[in-house]
Simulated assay, not measured.
Amino acid sequence: MMLKDKIANAPSKLTVSYRVLLATVGGFILTLIFTVFMPELFLWSFGWNKATSLMWMMLLSFGVYCGLIMWIIATRKLLKTSLILLLCGIALTIGFTQLQSHNSNQPTSTEVTS
C-alpha cells in the first residue's frame, strides 16, 4: 500500500520537464540580468568601476545560478516560483535600463597606471 501511495503522489513528466526547463533557462536568464544589473547599481550608489564590478559579478554569478537551480527544483509551488522569476526579471530589467540611462550622463573617470 505504501508504494502505491508514493506512485500516486509522484509528479508528472510534464511537471518535471517544466521544472528542469525553468531551472536551466529561467535561472540562466535571471542570473544574466542580475549580473549586468549589479555593476550599474554599484556605479550609481558607490561610484565603483563598472568593469571591476562586472568581473566580480561574473564570478559570483555561478553561485547565484546554482542557488536558483536548487530553489526551483526544491520548491513545491511551481506556478508561484515561475511568477516570482518573471517579476524579478522584469523588475531587474526596468531597473537596469533606468540605471544605465542615469549612469550614462555621469562623467567617466579613467584610471592611469604608471
Rank of each mutant, 00 (worst) to 15 (best):
T81Q: 05
G67Q: 07
M58A: 12
T110F: 12
K4L: 13
L60C: 09
G89I: 05
L85P: 00
M38P: 05
E40M: 09
S17Q: 05
L60H: 06
D5T: 13
F42T: 14
I94G: 07
P39T: 09
A10G: 01
E111V: 12
N103K: 01
K50H: 14
F62T: 00
V112R: 09
S12C: 07
V64D: 06
K4V: 12
T15W: 09
I69C: 10
M55A: 14
S82H: 01
F28G: 05
M57D: 12
S114F: 15
L60K: 08
S53I: 08
A51C: 09
T75N: 09
N49R: 04
K4W: 08
A8E: 03
T97W: 06
K13I: 14
S12L: 05
W56T: 14
Q106K: 15
E40A: 11
L30R: 07
L86V: 06
L78N: 05
R19F: 02
S45R: 08
M58R: 13
G89D: 07
G26T: 03
N103W: 04
G67N: 08
W56K: 04
K13H: 13
S61N: 09
A51W: 07
M2W: 13
L78V: 10
A51K: 10
G27S: 03
S17W: 07
V25Q: 00
A91P: 06
L32W: 10
T75S: 09
R76M: 10
I73V: 10
M58L: 15
L54W: 04
R19P: 06
A8C: 04
A10Q: 03
G47N: 08
C66M: 15
T35A: 11
P11W: 07
T75P: 00
S53W: 00
M58E: 10
G67K: 03
L21N: 04
T81S: 12
Y18D: 01
A23L: 01
M70D: 11
E111S: 08
L87R: 09
R76D: 14
Y18F: 12
L87M: 11
S12H: 01
V112G: 00
S17T: 15
N9I: 01
L68F: 14
T24F: 12
I33P: 02
L54K: 01
V64N: 05
L92H: 00
F37N: 06
